[in-house]
């Protein structure tokens, strides 16, 4: 079992309830809401700023502060993660106007609008081992995960990296095994589609 250096909370109360409790000044809810979204937002930003750690921290900090400061304006038309990523995208765009972007950010920027549209499609060939070992593939894996909704990212990591069973994942999240299995299936499909899109854009995979 791989040991990850970051927490990966699977158990999560209803996000909107957390948001409302946070708005009422509930410290525990605010902490939990932060922890639910920090990793996914951080990953999202990291791959879109050329893996510049310092810049990623800056953008994440600004996005989180802006998001939490304006939490009451969140209307629920998208997920909170999508909303926070939208804030981050704007900040990244503003920053990128002052510098020449590196390829993965270009790809993610270009692909940003299409990722959601691809999530419902499925096409995959077995990947050769040689591909798995490439640095470019590692980038794509990270970039793909960063583009997925947090709950998809969480179940994929829980299942394939932490090697938890569906029963364990279901128990930790408070959902049924059937619902968890369904979530995993959707997560896999989404991963496949986003990965394929990014790979085609870079033109290095068959």
């Amino acid at each position: 079992m791989r040991v990850l250096d970051r927490p990966n909370p699977v158990q999560r109360p209803e996000t909107d309830e957390l948001r409302l409790r946070t708005l009422r000044g509930d410290r525990e809810a605010a902490e939990q809401l932060f922890r639910e979204h920090f990793d996914s937002l951080y990953d999202f930003v990291y791959f879109r700023v050329g893996r510049d750690l310092h810049l990623a921290e800056q953008i994440v900090q600004e996005s989180m502060m802006t998001g939490f400061e304006n939490l009451k304006t969140f209307e629920g038309r998208s997920s909170l993660h999508t909303w926070l990523c939208g804030i981050a995208k704007n900040k990244i765009r503003a920053y990128r106007r002052t510098r020449r972007p590196v390829p993965i950010e270009d790809i993610l920027e270009d692909a940003g609008g299409e990722i959601d549209a691809i999530l419902s499609q499925i096409e995959r060939e077995p990947l050769p081992d040689s591909v798995l070992q490439r640095r470019e593939t590692q980038e794509l894996v990270g970039a793909t995960l960063s583009s997925l909704p947090p709950e998809y990212r969480r179940v994929l990591i829980a299942k394939y990296l932490e090697e938890r069973s569906v029963a364990e994942i279901a128990s930790a999240s408070g959902k049924s095994e059937k619902a968890t299995e369904s979530m995993l299936t959707r997560a896999r499909v989404a991963f496949g589609k986003v990965f394929e899109l990014l790979a085609k854009r870079r033109g290095e995979l068959e």
Partner: peptide, 14 residues
């Protein structure tokens, strides 16, 4: 199978 292999072998935590 591909996803499992990708995450096990090509995933680098941020």
């Amino acid at each position: 199978e591909n996803i499992s292999r990708l995450l096990r072998r090509a995933y680098v935590p941020v």
